[in-house]
Structure formats: structure tokens, C-alpha cells
Design a protein around this nucleic acid. Structure first.
Lengths: 219, 219
DNA sequence: CTGCCTATATATAACAT
DNA sequence: TATGTTATATATAGGCA
């Protein structure tokens, strides 16, 4: 209804659906309250999110409104006779149980179990659903892998640079110590230590200089 | 809210109040329906006008939504009541609720939603699960197709045999009639009709003899 | 009441943070 | 995920028929 007009059908994207639910729910409750105040109406509004979370509003008492509603139903129809039956069908426990059964069956079908009872059309739809899910899993997995690889490479580069710096420092330190002790600079030691100070070369021959130097984090 | 902004308080003028009630009520119900569709939510909306007239809407069954709502209320009451019996029911309720949430999440992951929070190991397992499911779906679908094809071929064979028999019968009948009329057998007619009486050949050239013979079921 | 019209007030979809 | 922003889509107050 704003940047672009939308079709009134289930929103595919989960995140978008949740955001829209949150926003529109607020709007709906606001409108309900306004109507009850402006026009002195008695209103009850019950909303369950797709995940079963409850949101409700009643201008007076929810029970009052519901009872009033039931009275209207009884007045105008045959429900009073079936009430016992319906109560059994609709009782809380059965409601939840049925929901669980439904979801369980759906999961089983997604896992490829209990397919015998499905017809060809059902199977085609299920295949499509499963393919979509699998492709998204594979896509996210690939992204995750690339991310880890990138992160590791970055860490590696950083560590190689650190190593290089530390070796240089150590070389400098040794040179200064020798200068102090002998009053003479010693090029030979510096040369030895800095011999393999190229990060790339260190990486290739796997020499772990940091360990030898007793640094806190070998990795 | 349009020509002029209004305060949210009871509208004094009766006529204006009724008009506003009618207009806003429609808007409210429209919004409720949109929300239920867009976000897959379960919604019940009950409105009584100031004069006691009822308007209601429920995305599924009003009774179901109200039952579910009552359940939530009972669940909350039990937190304060602490009765042993109630606590047990409370546990049962929570047990079922958690089961639903868990299955819902699992289903979403199978559909490729909400994958961002999973680590690489989870994703690998999920991929395996999805692959297994998909492959079984495809396998069963193939079996179902082969079964249908087999069944159709069997039916075809049966029909071809029937056709063959019928043609023979018809030929005999015609020959008898001719014999009766002319007191003489006519080999030529029999030969004409039975010329392509081989079922396989019939199938190949797609001649629909059953139709020509005026049989009830062309297929 | 009901519906239609039009100027505004609101709600909100797509982004951004 | 939650909140804020903005451009549009809707809803609707006040009239009128």
C-alpha cells in the first residue's frame, strides 16, 4: 500500500511476513479501539500469529463479548443441539493435538516418509517444495563456507604480518643487545634471523616461528 | 481523518456516528481479512453496534479461535493458581505448544527458511535430510508414474482383446444375417471386418473400431 | 441508511539503520 | 530483530444525492 501496491496473498518471505504482521497488527488493533470509542461499539479482536502467539483486545470484557456472540449464534441456528459434539471436536487439547499431527505429517513427507498415500499431483508439489528448500540450504551452506574461508584467509594474512613484524623486532633487539655487550654491531645475527622473514615463505614451509618465540597465541 | 482530523472520542451526533460506524466497520473487517491472508494469522473479530447488532469475522472457525483463546487465558490463570491439577494441565499445554513451535521451525528449515542462524554442520545435516526426502519423493513419484502406465497398458490390452472379440462376434452375426437373407454364406464380409482384427495392429494404426461399432466406451 | 465524491489524514511497503 | 524514514496506497470526514 505504499512504495508499491501488494497483492493480498500470503507473503512468501518469512522476515517480510513477520514485519508486516507486526505493523499491520498494530494498525488493526488501533482501528478496532478507535471504532469502539468513536461509535460506542463492543468489540473483541483475537489474533494468533502463524507461530501461535496470541494478541487480543476487547472493548469491554472478552468473555462478555464472546458470550454475547454465542448467544447470537444459539438464537439463530441449530448449534445448540450439536454443542456437545462441537465442544468435543473443538476442545483445546484436540485443537493442539491436531495441529501437531498435521505438522508432523508434513515433516514426514518432507523427509520422504509416508508418501504412499499421496497422488501424483501431491508428489509433484512436494518435489517442488523439497527442491526449493534443498536449493536454499545448499546456497546458504555455500555462502557460509565462503565466509569461513574468507575469514580464515584474513586471519592468516594478519598473523603472517604479525610474525614478520615480531621477527624484525626480535632481530633489532638482538642487535641492540649485542651492540651493548660488545660495543660493536653484528650483521651476522640479524641476517640469520631475518633470513626467512618473508611471510609467504613462512607459510609454505609451515615453520611456526611464533611458537619458537614463545608468543601467547600460536594461531 | 480527512477533510478534518477528528478526536478519538464518542461521536455526539447520532447520524454521523452511525455513518462512521458503518464505514469504519467495513475498513476494520477488510484489514482483519488482509492480515490473516498476508501473514497466515488466525483472526476472530466480533463487533456489536451500540444497538446490539452483531458483525463478526473469523479467518478459520470462530469456535476454534475462541477455544484457542480460552486456552491461553486458562494457561495464564494457572500461573497464579498453582493447583496441582492445573499445573499438570499447564505442563501438558506447554508440552504441546513447544512441540508445535519445534515442528513449525523444523518445517521452515526444510522449506529453506530461517537458515541464517544455522552453522555449517547443521546445514550439512539439513542438506542431507532434504536430499534424502527429495530423492524418496522422486522415487515414489517415478513408481507412481510407472504404476499408472502399467495400469493403463493393462487396460488397453484388455480393451483391445474385447474389441477383437466383439469384432469377431459382429462378423459372425453379419454372416448369419446374410445367410438368413440370402441363404448363402458370404466370406467376403467376414474377411473385410476381420482384416485388421489383430489387437496389436489395431493399436499401431490407432483405428478406433469400438467407435465405429457404436460401443458405449470408446476408451 | 447507502453510495459516491474529494480533500486530507493515516497506514504501510520497501529501505535504511 | 526492532525502529525510523519516505513515498505511495488506503481510509475516511464531511458533503451531496
Amino acid at each position: 500500500m505504499t512504495r508499491q501496491k501488494i497483492q493480498i496473498k500470503k507473503i512468501d518471505n518469512l522476515t517480510a511476513r513477520q514485519v508486516t504482521f507486526s505493523k499491520r497488527r498494530r494498525g488493526l488493533f488501533k482501528k478496532a479501539k478507535e471504532l469502539s470509542i468513536l461509535c460506542d461499539a463492543e468489540i473483541a479482536l483475537i489474533v494468533f500469529s502463524a507461530t501461535g502467539k496470541l494478541f487480543d483486545y476487547a472493548s469491554s470484557s472478552m468473555q462478555q463479548v464472546i458470550e454475547k456472540h454465542n448467544m447470537h449464534l444459539e438464537n439463530q441456528d441449530k448449534l445448540s443441539q450439536q454443542s456437545l459434539e462441537l465442544e468435543l471436536e473443538n476442545n483445546a487439547y484436540n485443537l493442539l493435538s491436531n495441529e501437531i499431527v498435521e505438522r508432523t505429517n508434513e515433516l514426514r513427507r518432507m523427509r520422504g516418509e509416508e508418501l504412499q498415500e499421496l497422488n501424483l499431483e501431491d508428489l509433484k508439489q512436494l518435489e517442488k517444495l523439497a527442491e526449493g528448500g534443498l536449493s536454499r540450504v545448499i546456497k546458504i551452506k555455500g555462502e557460509r563456507i565462503m565466509k569461513e574461508i574468507h575469514s580464515l584467509k584474513k586471519k592468516e594474512t594478519q598473523l603472517l604480518e604479525d610474525n614478520y613484524r615480531l621477527k624484525k623486532q626480535m632481530a633489532d633487539t638482538l642487535r641492540v643487545q649485542k651492540d651493548v655487550r660488545q660495543g660493536q654491531s653484528s650483521e651476522s645475527i640479524v641476517t640469520d634471523i631475518c633470513n626467512s622473514a618473508d611471510p609467504l615463505q613462512d607459510h609454505i614451509d609451515s615453520s611456526d616461528t611464533s611458537l619458537k618465540l614463545g608468543l601467547p597465541f600460536p594461531n
